[in-house]
Design a protein around this nucleic acid. Sequence first.
DNA 1: AACGTTATGTGACCGCGGGTACCGAATGTG
DNA 2: CACATTCGGTACCCGCGGTCACATAACGTT
Lengths: 232, 232
Amino acid sequence: MREHWCISEVEIFRDLTDKEMATIGSQAPARTVAAGQVVHAPTGTAQVLYIVKTGRLRFYRVTTDGRTVTTGVAGPGTVFGEMDLLGLRMGGTWAEAIEASLLCLMSRNDVRRLLLSDHRIATRITEQLGARVADLEERLTDVVSKNVNERVASSLRSLLATDQDRKPQPIKLTHEQLAQLVGTTRERATKALGELAELNLVRLRRGKVVVQDERGLAAYADGAYRASAEAR
Amino acid sequence: MREHWCISEVEIFRDLTDKEMATIGSQAPARTVAAGQVVHAPTGTAQVLYIVKTGRLRFYRVTTDGRTVTTGVAGPGTVFGEMDLLGLRMGGTWAEAIEASLLCLMSRNDVRRLLLSDHRIATRITEQLGARVADLEERLTDVVSKNVNERVASSLRSLLATDQDRKPQPIKLTHEQLAQLVGTTRERATKALGELAELNLVRLRRGKVVVQDERGLAAYADGAYRASAEAR
DNA sequence: AACGTTATGTGACCGCGGGTACCGAATGTG
DNA sequence: CACATTCGGTACCCGCGGTCACATAACGTT
Protein backbone atom coordinates (compact mmCIF):
# COMPACT_ATOMS: atom_id res chain seq x y z
CA MET A 1 0.00 0.00 0.00
CA ARG A 2 2.95 2.25 0.52
CA GLU A 3 4.16 1.60 -3.00
CA HIS A 4 1.30 3.14 -4.92
CA TRP A 5 -0.02 5.71 -2.47
CA CYS A 6 0.47 8.37 -5.12
CA ILE A 7 -1.97 6.65 -7.45
CA SER A 8 -4.54 5.03 -5.23
CA GLU A 9 -7.78 6.75 -4.38
CA VAL A 10 -7.50 8.90 -7.45
CA GLU A 11 -10.61 8.97 -9.59
CA ILE A 12 -8.89 8.53 -12.89
CA PHE A 13 -7.51 5.14 -11.90
CA ARG A 14 -10.68 3.78 -10.36
CA ASP A 15 -10.92 1.02 -12.96
CA LEU A 16 -7.52 -0.42 -12.13
CA THR A 17 -6.89 -3.23 -9.71
CA ASP A 18 -4.60 -2.80 -6.73
CA LYS A 19 -1.95 -4.73 -8.56
CA GLU A 20 -2.11 -2.43 -11.58
CA MET A 21 -2.00 0.63 -9.38
CA ALA A 22 1.00 -0.75 -7.58
CA THR A 23 2.80 -1.13 -10.88
CA ILE A 24 2.10 2.46 -11.85
CA GLY A 25 2.44 4.03 -8.44
CA SER A 26 5.83 2.61 -7.70
CA GLN A 27 7.15 4.52 -10.68
CA ALA A 28 5.61 7.94 -10.30
CA PRO A 29 7.42 10.50 -8.16
CA ALA A 30 5.55 13.11 -6.15
CA ARG A 31 6.01 16.83 -5.67
CA THR A 32 4.76 19.07 -2.91
CA VAL A 33 3.91 22.69 -3.61
CA ALA A 34 3.18 25.55 -1.23
CA ALA A 35 0.16 27.84 -1.44
CA GLY A 36 0.61 30.46 -4.13
CA GLN A 37 3.33 28.57 -5.95
CA VAL A 38 3.08 28.43 -9.74
CA VAL A 39 3.07 24.83 -10.96
CA HIS A 40 2.75 25.35 -14.68
CA ALA A 41 3.50 28.35 -16.89
CA PRO A 42 2.68 28.60 -20.61
CA THR A 43 6.35 29.13 -21.42
CA GLY A 44 8.60 26.10 -21.42
CA THR A 45 6.21 23.41 -22.45
CA ALA A 46 8.00 20.38 -21.01
CA GLN A 47 6.15 17.14 -21.41
CA VAL A 48 4.89 16.47 -17.90
CA LEU A 49 1.63 15.02 -16.67
CA TYR A 50 0.41 16.14 -13.27
CA ILE A 51 -2.14 14.34 -11.15
CA VAL A 52 -3.49 16.17 -8.12
CA LYS A 53 -3.31 13.91 -5.09
CA THR A 54 -4.26 16.38 -2.34
CA GLY A 55 -4.88 20.11 -2.13
CA ARG A 56 -6.40 22.58 -4.60
CA LEU A 57 -4.99 24.45 -7.56
CA ARG A 58 -6.46 27.04 -9.83
CA PHE A 59 -6.09 27.39 -13.57
CA TYR A 60 -5.95 30.95 -14.81
CA ARG A 61 -5.14 33.23 -17.69
CA VAL A 62 -3.57 36.64 -17.76
CA THR A 63 -5.35 39.40 -19.64
CA THR A 64 -3.53 41.82 -21.92
CA ASP A 65 -3.82 44.49 -19.23
CA GLY A 66 -2.22 42.26 -16.63
CA ARG A 67 -5.20 41.13 -14.60
CA THR A 68 -5.79 37.48 -13.87
CA VAL A 69 -8.92 35.42 -14.59
CA THR A 70 -9.45 32.07 -12.91
CA THR A 71 -10.78 29.58 -15.43
CA GLY A 72 -11.11 26.60 -13.15
CA VAL A 73 -10.38 25.08 -9.76
CA ALA A 74 -8.73 21.68 -9.64
CA GLY A 75 -9.08 19.30 -6.72
CA PRO A 76 -7.80 15.80 -5.97
CA GLY A 77 -7.94 13.51 -9.00
CA THR A 78 -7.55 16.22 -11.61
CA VAL A 79 -5.13 15.45 -14.42
CA PHE A 80 -3.42 18.23 -16.33
CA GLY A 81 -0.22 19.19 -18.09
CA GLU A 82 1.42 18.93 -21.49
CA MET A 83 1.40 15.38 -22.81
CA ASP A 84 1.10 14.96 -26.54
CA LEU A 85 0.83 11.20 -26.24
CA LEU A 86 -2.55 11.75 -24.63
CA GLY A 87 -3.42 14.80 -26.70
CA LEU A 88 -3.40 16.88 -23.54
CA ARG A 89 -2.31 20.53 -23.65
CA MET A 90 -2.56 23.55 -21.40
CA GLY A 91 -2.91 26.21 -24.07
CA GLY A 92 -2.09 29.60 -22.57
CA THR A 93 -3.21 28.54 -19.13
CA TRP A 94 -1.26 28.87 -15.90
CA ALA A 95 -1.65 26.64 -12.89
CA GLU A 96 -0.89 27.65 -9.32
CA ALA A 97 -1.59 26.14 -5.92
CA ILE A 98 -4.39 27.74 -3.89
CA GLU A 99 -3.29 25.79 -0.84
CA ALA A 100 -0.42 23.43 -0.05
CA SER A 101 -0.82 20.50 -2.42
CA LEU A 102 0.66 17.18 -3.38
CA LEU A 103 1.06 16.26 -7.04
CA CYS A 104 2.03 13.06 -8.81
CA LEU A 105 4.29 13.52 -11.80
CA MET A 106 4.59 11.35 -14.85
CA SER A 107 7.05 11.70 -17.66
CA ARG A 108 6.46 10.93 -21.30
CA ASN A 109 7.97 7.51 -20.79
CA ASP A 110 5.85 6.82 -17.74
CA VAL A 111 2.74 7.62 -19.74
CA ARG A 112 3.79 5.46 -22.64
CA ARG A 113 4.59 2.47 -20.47
CA LEU A 114 1.82 2.78 -17.93
CA LEU A 115 -1.20 4.62 -19.26
CA LEU A 116 -1.44 4.25 -23.01
CA SER A 117 -2.28 0.59 -22.87
CA ASP A 118 -5.59 1.08 -21.14
CA HIS A 119 -8.40 2.88 -22.92
CA ARG A 120 -10.30 3.24 -19.64
CA ILE A 121 -7.79 5.87 -18.61
CA ALA A 122 -8.36 7.81 -21.81
CA THR A 123 -12.06 7.68 -21.03
CA ARG A 124 -11.48 9.21 -17.59
CA ILE A 125 -9.43 12.00 -19.11
CA THR A 126 -12.17 12.70 -21.64
CA GLU A 127 -14.68 12.81 -18.79
CA GLN A 128 -12.58 15.35 -16.94
CA LEU A 129 -12.18 17.57 -19.96
CA GLY A 130 -15.87 17.28 -20.65
CA ALA A 131 -16.59 18.43 -17.11
CA ARG A 132 -14.26 21.40 -17.60
CA VAL A 133 -16.00 22.29 -20.84
CA ALA A 134 -19.37 22.13 -19.11
CA ASP A 135 -18.09 24.26 -16.24
CA LEU A 136 -16.60 26.85 -18.57
CA GLU A 137 -19.75 26.98 -20.65
CA GLU A 138 -21.81 27.59 -17.56
CA ARG A 139 -19.41 30.26 -16.37
CA LEU A 140 -19.48 31.96 -19.75
CA THR A 141 -23.25 31.84 -19.81
CA ASP A 142 -23.38 33.29 -16.32
CA VAL A 143 -21.09 36.17 -17.16
CA VAL A 144 -23.28 37.36 -20.01
CA SER A 145 -26.65 36.72 -18.42
CA LYS A 146 -26.36 37.21 -14.67
CA ASN A 147 -25.35 40.18 -12.58
CA VAL A 148 -22.43 39.94 -10.17
CA ASN A 149 -24.55 39.01 -7.15
CA GLU A 150 -26.11 36.10 -8.95
CA ARG A 151 -22.78 35.00 -10.36
CA VAL A 152 -21.22 34.90 -6.92
CA ALA A 153 -24.14 32.79 -5.72
CA SER A 154 -23.80 30.54 -8.75
CA SER A 155 -20.08 30.14 -8.18
CA LEU A 156 -20.54 29.24 -4.52
CA ARG A 157 -23.16 26.69 -5.50
CA SER A 158 -20.90 24.91 -7.97
CA LEU A 159 -17.98 25.05 -5.55
CA LEU A 160 -20.19 23.26 -3.04
CA ALA A 161 -21.04 20.60 -5.61
CA THR A 162 -17.35 19.94 -6.14
CA ASP A 163 -16.60 18.88 -2.59
CA GLN A 164 -19.78 16.86 -2.23
CA ASP A 165 -18.98 15.74 1.29
CA ARG A 166 -21.12 16.82 4.19
CA LYS A 167 -22.81 20.20 3.93
CA PRO A 168 -21.29 22.59 6.47
CA GLN A 169 -18.08 22.56 4.50
CA PRO A 170 -16.74 26.11 4.41
CA ILE A 171 -15.46 27.34 1.06
CA LYS A 172 -11.94 28.51 1.68
CA LEU A 173 -11.50 31.40 -0.70
CA THR A 174 -10.87 35.09 -0.13
CA HIS A 175 -13.08 37.73 -1.69
CA GLU A 176 -10.22 38.44 -4.04
CA GLN A 177 -10.05 34.84 -5.23
CA LEU A 178 -13.80 34.66 -5.59
CA ALA A 179 -13.74 37.88 -7.59
CA GLN A 180 -11.24 36.41 -10.04
CA LEU A 181 -13.47 33.38 -10.34
CA VAL A 182 -16.63 35.29 -11.27
CA GLY A 183 -14.80 37.93 -13.26
CA THR A 184 -15.25 41.04 -11.19
CA THR A 185 -13.38 43.23 -8.74
CA ARG A 186 -12.65 42.49 -5.11
CA GLU A 187 -14.78 45.42 -3.95
CA ARG A 188 -17.80 44.27 -5.93
CA ALA A 189 -17.40 40.70 -4.65
CA THR A 190 -17.36 41.98 -1.07
CA LYS A 191 -20.61 43.83 -1.66
CA ALA A 192 -22.20 40.79 -3.30
CA LEU A 193 -21.20 38.54 -0.42
CA GLY A 194 -22.52 41.13 1.98
CA GLU A 195 -25.94 40.98 0.37
CA LEU A 196 -25.96 37.19 0.38
CA ALA A 197 -25.07 37.26 4.07
CA GLU A 198 -27.86 39.80 4.63
CA LEU A 199 -30.32 37.25 3.26
CA ASN A 200 -28.87 34.55 5.55
CA LEU A 201 -27.77 32.51 2.56
CA VAL A 202 -24.15 32.49 3.69
CA ARG A 203 -22.04 33.46 6.67
CA LEU A 204 -18.75 35.24 6.22
CA ARG A 205 -15.54 34.42 7.98
CA ARG A 206 -12.10 35.75 7.24
CA GLY A 207 -10.81 33.83 4.23
CA LYS A 208 -13.84 31.61 3.86
CA VAL A 209 -17.54 31.51 3.11
CA VAL A 210 -19.93 29.17 4.91
CA VAL A 211 -23.03 28.35 2.94
CA GLN A 212 -26.06 28.42 5.22
CA ASP A 213 -28.93 27.84 2.82
CA GLU A 214 -27.93 25.82 -0.22
CA ARG A 215 -31.38 25.80 -1.81
CA GLY A 216 -31.85 29.50 -1.26
CA LEU A 217 -28.45 30.18 -2.74
CA ALA A 218 -29.29 28.18 -5.85
CA ALA A 219 -32.59 30.02 -6.18
CA TYR A 220 -30.83 33.37 -5.86
CA ALA A 221 -28.32 32.31 -8.52
CA ASP A 222 -31.17 31.56 -10.90
CA GLY A 223 -32.69 34.99 -10.49
CA ALA A 224 -35.25 34.42 -7.74
CA TYR A 225 -34.55 37.91 -6.48
CA ARG A 226 -35.19 39.49 -9.85
CA ALA A 227 -38.37 37.45 -10.32
CA SER A 228 -39.81 38.67 -7.03
CA ALA A 229 -38.79 42.22 -7.89
CA GLU A 230 -40.66 42.25 -11.17
CA ALA A 231 -43.66 40.58 -9.55
CA ARG A 232 -43.83 43.57 -7.27
CA MET B 1 -13.33 5.24 -51.84
CA ARG B 2 -17.09 5.29 -51.93
CA GLU B 3 -17.28 2.94 -48.99
CA HIS B 4 -15.72 5.14 -46.37
CA TRP B 5 -16.46 8.63 -47.68
CA CYS B 6 -18.13 9.44 -44.39
CA ILE B 7 -14.93 8.84 -42.48
CA SER B 8 -12.15 9.84 -44.82
CA GLU B 9 -10.64 13.31 -44.71
CA VAL B 10 -11.82 13.74 -41.15
CA GLU B 11 -9.10 14.91 -38.80
CA ILE B 12 -9.89 12.50 -36.01
CA PHE B 13 -9.13 9.51 -38.21
CA ARG B 14 -5.94 10.86 -39.75
CA ASP B 15 -3.84 8.12 -38.18
CA LEU B 16 -5.81 5.33 -39.78
CA THR B 17 -4.93 3.62 -43.02
CA ASP B 18 -7.34 3.55 -45.94
CA LYS B 19 -8.15 -0.03 -45.10
CA GLU B 20 -9.04 0.82 -41.53
CA MET B 21 -11.15 3.75 -42.62
CA ALA B 22 -12.97 1.53 -45.07
CA THR B 23 -13.84 -0.84 -42.27
CA ILE B 24 -15.26 1.92 -40.14
CA GLY B 25 -16.81 4.00 -42.88
CA SER B 26 -18.79 1.20 -44.39
CA GLN B 27 -20.68 0.90 -41.14
CA ALA B 28 -21.48 4.48 -40.23
CA PRO B 29 -24.67 6.02 -41.59
CA ALA B 30 -24.92 9.71 -42.43
CA ARG B 31 -27.51 12.38 -41.74
CA THR B 32 -28.12 15.67 -43.45
CA VAL B 33 -29.46 18.64 -41.52
CA ALA B 34 -30.79 21.97 -42.75
CA ALA B 35 -29.67 25.37 -41.48
CA GLY B 36 -31.28 26.18 -38.15
CA GLN B 37 -32.17 22.60 -37.36
CA VAL B 38 -31.50 21.41 -33.81
CA VAL B 39 -29.26 18.33 -33.82
CA HIS B 40 -28.91 17.68 -30.13
CA ALA B 41 -31.01 18.76 -27.16
CA PRO B 42 -30.11 18.22 -23.49
CA THR B 43 -33.29 16.22 -22.96
CA GLY B 44 -33.33 12.65 -24.16
CA THR B 45 -29.69 11.74 -23.87
CA ALA B 46 -29.54 8.87 -26.36
CA GLN B 47 -26.11 7.40 -26.85
CA VAL B 48 -25.08 8.76 -30.23
CA LEU B 49 -21.75 9.98 -31.50
CA TYR B 50 -21.78 12.65 -34.20
CA ILE B 51 -18.91 13.49 -36.49
CA VAL B 52 -19.21 16.62 -38.60
CA LYS B 53 -18.38 15.83 -42.19
CA THR B 54 -19.34 19.11 -43.87
CA GLY B 55 -21.04 22.33 -42.79
CA ARG B 56 -20.99 24.24 -39.53
CA LEU B 57 -22.89 23.86 -36.26
CA ARG B 58 -23.01 25.90 -33.13
CA PHE B 59 -23.09 24.73 -29.55
CA TYR B 60 -25.13 26.90 -27.23
CA ARG B 61 -26.80 27.18 -23.87
CA VAL B 62 -30.03 28.82 -22.87
CA THR B 63 -29.98 31.29 -20.01
CA THR B 64 -32.62 31.28 -17.27
CA ASP B 65 -34.22 34.33 -18.90
CA GLY B 66 -34.48 32.59 -22.24
CA ARG B 67 -31.65 34.15 -24.19
CA THR B 68 -29.15 31.98 -26.00
CA VAL B 69 -25.36 32.03 -25.65
CA THR B 70 -23.18 30.39 -28.27
CA THR B 71 -20.38 28.47 -26.57
CA GLY B 72 -18.63 27.18 -29.66
CA VAL B 73 -18.69 26.74 -33.41
CA ALA B 74 -18.04 23.28 -34.81
CA GLY B 75 -16.71 22.66 -38.30
CA PRO B 76 -15.77 19.54 -40.27
CA GLY B 77 -13.99 16.95 -38.14
CA THR B 78 -15.61 17.89 -34.87
CA VAL B 79 -16.80 14.99 -32.74
CA PHE B 80 -19.61 15.44 -30.23
CA GLY B 81 -22.54 13.72 -28.61
CA GLU B 82 -23.33 11.46 -25.68
CA MET B 83 -21.11 8.41 -25.59
CA ASP B 84 -20.21 7.06 -22.19
CA LEU B 85 -17.84 4.50 -23.67
CA LEU B 86 -15.61 7.40 -24.64
CA GLY B 87 -16.45 9.51 -21.60
CA LEU B 88 -18.04 12.07 -23.90
CA ARG B 89 -21.03 14.13 -22.72
CA MET B 90 -22.82 17.26 -23.82
CA GLY B 91 -23.85 18.56 -20.40
CA GLY B 92 -26.63 21.09 -20.81
CA THR B 93 -25.47 22.09 -24.26
CA TRP B 94 -27.58 22.26 -27.40
CA ALA B 95 -26.30 21.81 -30.94
CA GLU B 96 -27.89 23.28 -34.04
CA ALA B 97 -26.80 23.67 -37.64
CA ILE B 98 -25.70 27.14 -38.73
CA GLU B 99 -25.77 26.04 -42.34
CA ALA B 100 -26.79 22.86 -44.16
CA SER B 101 -24.51 20.14 -42.85
CA LEU B 102 -23.66 16.50 -43.17
CA LEU B 103 -23.05 14.39 -40.09
CA CYS B 104 -21.77 10.87 -39.56
CA LEU B 105 -23.54 8.91 -36.85
CA MET B 106 -22.17 6.13 -34.73
CA SER B 107 -24.07 4.04 -32.24
CA ARG B 108 -22.75 2.63 -29.00
CA ASN B 109 -22.02 -0.64 -30.74
CA ASP B 110 -20.23 1.06 -33.61
CA VAL B 111 -18.00 2.82 -31.15
CA ARG B 112 -17.27 -0.33 -29.23
CA ARG B 113 -16.40 -2.32 -32.31
CA LEU B 114 -14.61 0.34 -34.28
CA LEU B 115 -13.12 3.05 -32.11
CA LEU B 116 -12.30 1.70 -28.68
CA SER B 117 -9.50 -0.50 -29.89
CA ASP B 118 -7.31 2.35 -31.04
CA HIS B 119 -5.88 4.77 -28.51
CA ARG B 120 -4.95 7.21 -31.27
CA ILE B 121 -8.63 8.03 -31.64
CA ALA B 122 -8.93 8.76 -27.94
CA THR B 123 -5.96 11.08 -28.33
CA ARG B 124 -7.70 13.00 -31.09
CA ILE B 125 -10.82 13.39 -28.99
CA THR B 126 -8.75 14.68 -26.09
CA GLU B 127 -7.10 17.15 -28.46
CA GLN B 128 -10.48 18.43 -29.59
CA LEU B 129 -11.77 18.85 -26.08
CA GLY B 130 -8.53 20.56 -25.13
CA ALA B 131 -9.03 22.99 -27.99
CA ARG B 132 -12.57 23.69 -26.83
CA VAL B 133 -11.34 24.29 -23.30
CA ALA B 134 -8.72 26.70 -24.62
CA ASP B 135 -11.30 28.48 -26.75
CA LEU B 136 -13.77 28.79 -23.88
CA GLU B 137 -11.06 30.04 -21.55
CA GLU B 138 -10.09 32.70 -24.03
CA ARG B 139 -13.70 33.68 -24.53
CA LEU B 140 -14.27 33.89 -20.79
CA THR B 141 -11.14 35.97 -20.36
CA ASP B 142 -12.27 38.26 -23.17
CA VAL B 143 -15.70 38.81 -21.68
CA VAL B 144 -14.32 40.03 -18.38
CA SER B 145 -11.38 42.04 -19.71
CA LYS B 146 -12.30 43.45 -23.11
CA ASN B 147 -15.06 45.79 -24.21
CA VAL B 148 -17.53 44.69 -26.87
CA ASN B 149 -15.60 46.21 -29.78
CA GLU B 150 -12.46 44.33 -28.86
CA ARG B 151 -14.38 41.14 -28.25
CA VAL B 152 -15.94 41.27 -31.68
CA ALA B 153 -12.49 41.77 -33.18
CA SER B 154 -11.15 38.91 -31.09
CA SER B 155 -13.96 36.64 -32.17
CA LEU B 156 -13.47 37.42 -35.84
CA ARG B 157 -9.78 36.71 -35.46
CA SER B 158 -10.32 33.28 -33.97
CA LEU B 159 -13.01 32.48 -36.52
CA LEU B 160 -10.44 33.23 -39.21
CA ALA B 161 -7.95 30.92 -37.56
CA THR B 162 -10.48 28.10 -37.69
CA ASP B 163 -10.81 28.05 -41.46
CA GLN B 164 -7.12 28.54 -42.09
CA ASP B 165 -7.46 28.39 -45.84
CA ARG B 166 -6.65 31.39 -47.97
CA LYS B 167 -7.27 34.81 -46.52
CA PRO B 168 -10.18 36.50 -48.32
CA GLN B 169 -12.54 33.98 -46.76
CA PRO B 170 -15.68 35.82 -45.67
CA ILE B 171 -17.09 34.92 -42.27
CA LYS B 172 -20.67 33.97 -42.87
CA LEU B 173 -22.45 35.09 -39.74
CA THR B 174 -25.17 37.68 -39.16
CA HIS B 175 -24.73 40.43 -36.58
CA GLU B 176 -27.20 38.54 -34.45
CA GLN B 177 -25.13 35.35 -34.53
CA LEU B 178 -21.95 37.27 -33.84
CA ALA B 179 -23.66 38.97 -30.92
CA GLN B 180 -24.56 35.64 -29.36
CA LEU B 181 -20.97 34.56 -29.82
CA VAL B 182 -19.44 37.50 -27.98
CA GLY B 183 -22.25 37.77 -25.46
CA THR B 184 -23.89 41.06 -26.35
CA THR B 185 -26.92 42.44 -28.14
CA ARG B 186 -27.44 42.63 -31.87
CA GLU B 187 -27.52 46.43 -31.80
CA ARG B 188 -24.22 46.66 -29.97
CA ALA B 189 -22.61 44.17 -32.35
CA THR B 190 -23.74 46.29 -35.29
CA LYS B 191 -22.10 49.35 -33.79
CA ALA B 192 -18.90 47.44 -33.07
CA LEU B 193 -18.71 46.12 -36.62
CA GLY B 194 -19.39 49.63 -37.90
CA GLU B 195 -16.37 50.94 -36.04
CA LEU B 196 -14.17 48.11 -37.27
CA ALA B 197 -15.31 48.87 -40.81
CA GLU B 198 -14.56 52.56 -40.20
CA LEU B 199 -10.96 51.60 -39.47
CA ASN B 200 -10.82 49.50 -42.65
CA LEU B 201 -10.23 46.36 -40.63
CA VAL B 202 -13.27 44.63 -42.10
CA ARG B 203 -15.85 45.12 -44.83
CA LEU B 204 -19.49 44.43 -44.19
CA ARG B 205 -21.82 42.54 -46.48
CA ARG B 206 -25.29 41.33 -45.71
CA GLY B 207 -24.94 38.15 -43.68
CA LYS B 208 -21.15 38.10 -43.69
CA VAL B 209 -18.03 39.90 -42.61
CA VAL B 210 -14.92 40.10 -44.78
CA VAL B 211 -11.71 40.63 -42.87
CA GLN B 212 -9.54 43.17 -44.64
CA ASP B 213 -6.62 43.61 -42.26
CA GLU B 214 -5.95 40.53 -40.20
CA ARG B 215 -2.99 41.98 -38.31
CA GLY B 216 -4.80 45.20 -37.58
CA LEU B 217 -7.79 43.28 -36.35
CA ALA B 218 -5.63 41.25 -33.98
CA ALA B 219 -3.98 44.43 -32.71
CA TYR B 220 -7.38 46.02 -32.12
CA ALA B 221 -8.53 42.91 -30.25
CA ASP B 222 -5.52 43.22 -27.95
CA GLY B 223 -6.32 46.79 -27.05
CA ALA B 224 -4.20 48.73 -29.55
CA TYR B 225 -6.94 51.36 -29.70
CA ARG B 226 -6.98 51.85 -25.95
CA ALA B 227 -3.18 52.02 -25.85
CA SER B 228 -3.10 54.83 -28.42
CA ALA B 229 -5.92 56.59 -26.62
CA GLU B 230 -4.09 56.69 -23.31
CA ALA B 231 -0.87 57.73 -25.05
CA ARG B 232 -2.74 60.77 -26.27
C1' DA C 1 1.87 43.72 23.15
C1' DA C 2 3.53 46.28 19.10
C1' DC C 3 3.81 46.02 14.39
C1' DG C 4 3.43 44.75 9.47
C1' DT C 5 0.64 42.37 6.36
C1' DT C 6 -3.40 40.70 4.47
C1' DA C 7 -8.40 40.66 4.28
C1' DT C 8 -12.61 43.19 4.43
C1' DG C 9 -15.98 47.12 4.37
C1' DT C 10 -17.79 51.38 2.19
C1' DG C 11 -18.61 55.49 -0.43
C1' DA C 12 -18.32 58.84 -4.67
C1' DC C 13 -17.88 59.21 -9.46
C1' DC C 14 -18.92 58.06 -14.16
C1' DG C 15 -18.57 55.42 -18.49
C1' DC C 16 -19.85 51.27 -20.96
C1' DG C 17 -23.27 48.83 -22.68
C1' DG C 18 -28.25 46.91 -22.18
C1' DG C 19 -33.08 48.21 -23.19
C1' DT C 20 -36.18 50.21 -26.21
C1' DA C 21 -38.06 52.24 -30.21
C1' DC C 22 -37.89 53.08 -34.96
C1' DC C 23 -36.41 53.19 -39.83
C1' DG C 24 -34.28 51.78 -44.02
C1' DA C 25 -32.18 48.19 -46.90
C1' DA C 26 -31.72 43.62 -48.83
C1' DT C 27 -33.58 39.33 -50.05
C1' DG C 28 -36.87 35.84 -51.34
C1' DT C 29 -41.51 34.42 -52.57
C1' DG C 30 -45.92 34.17 -54.90
C1' DC D 1 -43.64 43.25 -59.36
C1' DA D 2 -45.76 43.66 -54.76
C1' DC D 3 -45.21 42.12 -50.42
C1' DA D 4 -43.39 39.86 -46.26
C1' DT D 5 -39.49 38.83 -43.76
C1' DT D 6 -35.05 39.14 -42.29
C1' DC D 7 -31.05 41.96 -41.62
C1' DG D 8 -28.76 46.19 -40.59
C1' DG D 9 -28.22 51.05 -38.76
C1' DT D 10 -29.05 54.71 -35.22
C1' DA D 11 -30.37 57.38 -31.18
C1' DC D 12 -31.82 58.10 -26.30
C1' DC D 13 -31.98 56.83 -21.52
C1' DC D 14 -30.14 55.01 -17.35
C1' DG D 15 -28.43 51.45 -14.22
C1' DC D 16 -24.76 48.15 -13.24
C1' DG D 17 -20.42 47.76 -12.05
C1' DG D 18 -15.39 49.33 -12.60
C1' DT D 19 -12.08 52.73 -10.59
C1' DC D 20 -10.22 55.27 -6.97
C1' DA D 21 -9.65 56.43 -2.33
C1' DC D 22 -9.72 55.38 2.43
C1' DA D 23 -10.91 53.10 6.89
C1' DT D 24 -11.12 49.13 9.81
C1' DA D 25 -10.41 44.52 11.25
C1' DA D 26 -8.10 40.03 11.65
C1' DC D 27 -4.09 37.50 11.79
C1' DG D 28 0.82 36.24 12.15
C1' DT D 29 5.42 37.52 13.90
C1' DT D 30 8.80 38.93 16.83
